[in-house]
């Protein structure tokens, strides 16, 4: 618990690049061994680069024939790609839930889909649109239950964290009559819920992961607000390592000074290269790639853990990232986008 208390209070300067990943848990020896074995089947960077440099969609898809993403020969279309990627994502999440001994951790990661479903359901309810049944089924709450709960407005059937999110989202919407307030409220509740769960589970790794994520989200938000010339200053998530004051100050200064503002933080590289790319290309691709790279770097530090939930969680997140990358490359190839753009998304 002391570790957790220390970790909770850590500032951005208390570690060099990545926060600590915590200790080992020998209960996860089998799960970690299994993850280490299947990790070797993940697509290598060389394959992704070859896909990016492929002549067309067909050639890029051919490079996946020996992998779990193999597309059937003949009538290859993008709907099929989407279906395969969704199936792979569901399979990875199921494997993760099977390997996790601590059910609350599996619940915590399933809650991401609950929050996504809730965003959709609340938006539809408040704008008096049909609720629909097109919700994700990978969450803690079944997709068909969503329609029923929101139609009857009987939120007591939902878990506590979702009830809280519904309450805050509805209140935020009616205060300003602005649909974006729903998302801001749900994002905030989701971040708080993640941190609270990590503390309850006494997981140094999860706490570090969620705080890093909050920081990266806040950095992206800051630059997006600057780009949109928005005056909203209360949309930053709390609980990260970076002080909100620094982020708010970033909104007032020029792009050339933003990198220097984060010089004493672990995110200097992320911000500096992201901002430079944005200034020259008016695109957030590099910033998002750098944020993903930073998070992947942190997840890779779990290699030092012989047994524990950390490698399993890291595998889930890296696998999800891999699925997103495959989707990105195939989408880009299908739409005949330039190779340089795809390489920018993949990083150097």
């Amino acid at each position: 618990m002391n570790d957790i208390a220390e970790q909770a209070e850590l500032g951005g300067l208390d570690f060099y690049t990545y926060p600590p990943v915590g200790g080992e848990d020998w209960g996860y020896a089998f799960a970690t061994a299994q993850v280490r074995a299947i990790e070797t089947q993940m697509l290598s960077r060389a394959v992704l680069l070859d896909m990016a440099n492929a002549q067309n969609f067909e050639d890029a898809a051919d490079l996946l024939t020996a992998s779990e993403y193999a597309l059937p020969q003949g009538s290859r279309n993008f709907t099929e790609v989407e279906n395969i990627l969704k199936l792979r994502r569901s399979a990875v999440r199921k494997l993760f839930a099977d390997l996790m001994i601590d059910e609350p951790i599996a619940e915590l990661f399933r809650a991401r889909d609950d929050f996504a479903n809730m965003r959709l359901a609340i938006r539809r309810t408040l704008t008096e649109k049909p609720l629909g049944t097109d919700y994700s089924d990978d969450g803690n709450v079944a997709a068909e239950q969503f329609e029923q709960v929101f139609e009857q407005e009987n939120y007591s059937l939902l878990p506590d964290y979702m009830q809280q999110a519904v309450g805050r989202a509805v209140l935020a919407y009616y205060q300003k009559k602005d649909i974006r307030q729903i998302d801001y409220a749900i994002d905030s509740v989701q971040a708080e819920y993640n941190l609270q769960k990590a503390r309850q589970l006494e997981s140094v790794f999860l706490l570090g992961l969620f705080r890093t994520r909050i920081d990266l989200t806040n950095i992206r938000t800051m630059l997006r607000l600057k780009f949109a010339e928005s005056d909203q200053r209360s949309v930053f998530l709390s609980g990260g390592y970076i002080e909100q004051q620094r982020l708010k100050h970033g909104l007032d200064i020029g792009y050339e000074a933003v990198g220097a503002l984060f010089f004493a933080t672990p995110y200097y590289e992320v911000v500096e290269s992201g901002v430079n790319y944005f200034v020259s290309n008016k695109s957030f691709l590099k910033l998002e790639q750098q944020c993903e790279e930073h998070l992947t770097g942190f997840l890779r530090t779990t290699l030092q853990i012989t047994a524990g939930p950390q490698p399993v969680i890291a595998y889930l997140l890296m696998k999800e990232n891999e699925i997103r990358t495959v989707r990105l490359i195939l989408t880009a190839k299908n739409s005949a986008l330039e190779t340089k753009l795809i390489l920018d998304c993949l990083g150097e």
């Binding site: 996504a116 959709l120 539809r124 974006r180």
Partner: peptide, 25 residues
Amino acid sequence: TCRRFMLARATMEPEDTKAALAVPT
């Protein structure tokens, strides 16, 4: 616009894309 939108759609989870654009303001 289409190029950017395609890139955005590809880098986001399908549920998030749907939730973000379901109710335009």
